[in-house]
Amino acid sequence: MGDEVTQTAKAVDKTQAKVAATQETVAASTVRQEKSVKRQESSALRQEESADRRTELAADRTVLAAERTYAAWMRTGVAAMVSGVGAGALLKGLVPTWVAFATSVMLVLFAQFSFIAAVWREVDTGVPPPRPDVRKLPAWIMVGFSGFLVLVAGAVLVGLWTR
């Protein structure tokens, strides 16, 4: 019976050693997991800050692109209006009068469309973009200039019509 007790004691000691080794492994693993969690949290914060900044920069690019688009529509309108006046003057005597007149009127009407299209997106922006860092041109300035040029194109049409 002493042998059995000794064997049982050895088995218990062996099991306790295994349990202690497992506990140490678990403790070491827990420490590694805690460090990993802290690194992931730090990385997530850096990533979130980076994403926020990228979003702000994208909003800035959107504002600047909208202003370039406005300028392109305005340039197109002015070029069409000038072309309408020029076409009427240059085609006079070369083609039938109605062709020169129709060409001039179509170009000036396209100019008016261009001036209206220039502010269309400014007035109807759809879903608001994130707040940009750059300042936008005031909408009243864009609408004012476009409206003025629509009136000028209208005056050009009246001038073409009455000549």
Rank of each mutant, 00 (worst) to 15 (best):
Val150Met: 10
Glu4Thr: 08
Asp124Glu: 02
Arg54Ile: 11
Val127Asp: 05
Leu94Asp: 09
Thr15Asn: 10
Leu109Tyr: 05
Leu94Met: 11
Leu57Thr: 04
Leu57Cys: 03
Asp124Gly: 00
Ala59His: 00
Ala72Ile: 01
Ala17Arg: 15
Lys136Cys: 08
Arg46Thr: 07
Val5His: 09
Glu4Pro: 00
Gly77Leu: 00
Val37Asn: 12
Ser104Cys: 13
Glu49Asp: 04
Gln33Val: 15
Val123Glu: 01
Thr25Ser: 14
Leu57Ser: 07
Arg75Val: 10
Arg54Met: 14
Arg131Lys: 14
Val5Lys: 13
Ala139Ser: 10
Val78Ile: 06
Ile141Cys: 04
Asp52Gln: 07
Lys92Ser: 10
Gly2Pro: 12
Thr15Ser: 12
Thr97Gly: 12
Ser29Ala: 10
Lys35Pro: 05
Lys92Tyr: 08
Arg61Met: 13
Ser146Val: 07
Gln40Val: 14
Gln112Met: 15
Gln40Thr: 09
Val150Pro: 03
Thr6Ala: 11
Leu91Ser: 05
Ala9Lys: 13
Leu137Phe: 11
Ala27Trp: 01
Val19Gln: 03
Leu91Cys: 08
Val5Cys: 05
Arg46Gly: 06
Val82Ser: 07
Ser50Asn: 09
Ala59Asp: 05
Gln40His: 12
Ala139Cys: 02
Arg121Gly: 14
Ala118Arg: 02
Arg53Met: 04
Leu94Tyr: 06
Pro128Asp: 04
Lys92Met: 06
Val5Trp: 04
Ala117Tyr: 04
Pro138Asp: 06
Thr97Lys: 13
Ala80Asn: 08
Met142Gln: 10
Leu94Asn: 08
Thr8Asn: 09
Leu151Met: 12
Val123Tyr: 00
Ser43Tyr: 06
Gly147Asp: 10
Glu122Ser: 01
Pro96Tyr: 08
Arg39Leu: 15
Thr30Gln: 15
Ala65Pro: 01
Gly154Arg: 03
Leu57Gln: 08
Ala89Tyr: 13
Glu67Lys: 02
Ser42Ile: 06
Ser43Pro: 01
Gly154Thr: 09
Val63Glu: 14
Thr15Phe: 11
Ala51Ile: 14
Val158Glu: 07
